[in-house]
Nucleic acid binder design. Structure first.
Length: 282
DNA sequence: CGCCAGGCTTCTA
DNA sequence: TAGAAGCATGGC
């Protein structure tokens, strides 16, 4: 991995960063495809533009300081995915799936944004999740250059379910407010949660109304740095049963990278498996 | 139109 | 401890 600071952009020279896979593997809801090689979205109050090149990714919209303070970690650039894959390759299922999923990076998103986003994801579909989150930002987030930031817990904690009705989140609005209130009160302290072991961290997150194992595990993986967290949704359960012949990942060894393995499997499921699943129901 | 969506809470037995 | 209903809304 090589970083080159240009006048108006930062070039990340690596073959391990595919922006299409990274933004469309279901971990993040605020980036959109602009054209075949370009994605744009907002993270940490900045509008980012990313362009896929043959030998890396060109990143626009952040200064060098912002990059090293925030976005180097956001894009998980400190992790050696070659090393991770070398371990995961020993898995009899993953060895066939890794070529398909290569280039996915697990983003380190803002904890509050991640937790709220996956509260919204419950019993929902990805296009509508994106719509609701976008509306949440437009209505309650701070205006920034090129769009709206994700709202702060302080702002959301003052809102009522009637206030949130405009975003059409349905039954999830009360969960969003509960989450915001518990963050503001300090009952949910992300910094503290980060320091806990994964099981204690999960239990802490589950004290928020509307947060169960699945939502908590997504927040742990995509927002709190727990790369061994293994969220189990309907797709993953299907994959576990079909490919591993089990209901739980606990008997599988992903060498501490269960979350990355999970994301490789999930991306495979929603792209390749989805086609076959649709066919099987005809 | 009907089924279902990266689930969770609550109620029942 | 397990299973099912109910939840709001809209994508497909």
């Amino acid at each position: 991995m090589n970083i080159k600071i240009n006048k108006n952009s930062i070039f990340i020279n690596t073959d391990r960063f595919n922006i299409q896979k990274t933004f469309e593997c279901g971990q993040c809801f605020r980036f959109n495809k602009i054209d075949d090689n370009t994605y744009q979205g907002i993270a940490y109050n900045k509008l980012l533009t990313l362009v896929q090149k043959d030998d890396g990714v060109e990143l626009y919209g952040v200064t060098e300081n912002e990059f090293y303070n925030t976005f180097f970690d956001y894009f998980d650039l400190g992790r050696d995915y070659d090393k991770v894959d070398a371990l995961l390759q020993t898995d009899p299922v993953l060895c066939n799936i890794i070529p398909h999923s290569k280039g996915i990076r697990i983003l380190n998103q803002h904890p509050f944004e991640t937790l709220v986003s996956f509260i919204i994801s419950a019993s929902n579909n990805i296009p509508r999740i994106k719509k609701i989150i976008n509306s949440l930002c437009e209505n309650f987030g701070e205006q920034i250059t090129g769009g709206f930031a994700f709202p702060t817990p302080e702002v959301l904690a003052t809102k009522s379910t009637e206030d949130l009705a405009v975003i059409k989140a349905g039954f999830r609005d009360k969960y969003i407010i509960d989450c915001a209130k518990k963050v503001v009160s300090g009952q949910i302290d992300f910094k503290k949660i980060k320091s806990l072991n994964i099981n204690s961290a999960r239990e802490q997150l589950k004290t928020v109304n509307g947060v169960g194992d699945k939502v908590a595990d997504c927040a742990l993986l995509f927002g709190l740095g727990f790369c061994d967290s293994f969220p189990k949704d309907v797709w993953i359960k299907r994959i576990l049963k079909e490919y591993y012949g089990t209901d739980t990942e606990k008997e599988l060894n992903f060498y501490g990278y269960g979350g990355i393995a999970q994301q490789y499997l999930f991306y495979y499921a929603i792209t390749e498996e989805k086609k076959q699943y649709a066919l099987s129901k005809v």
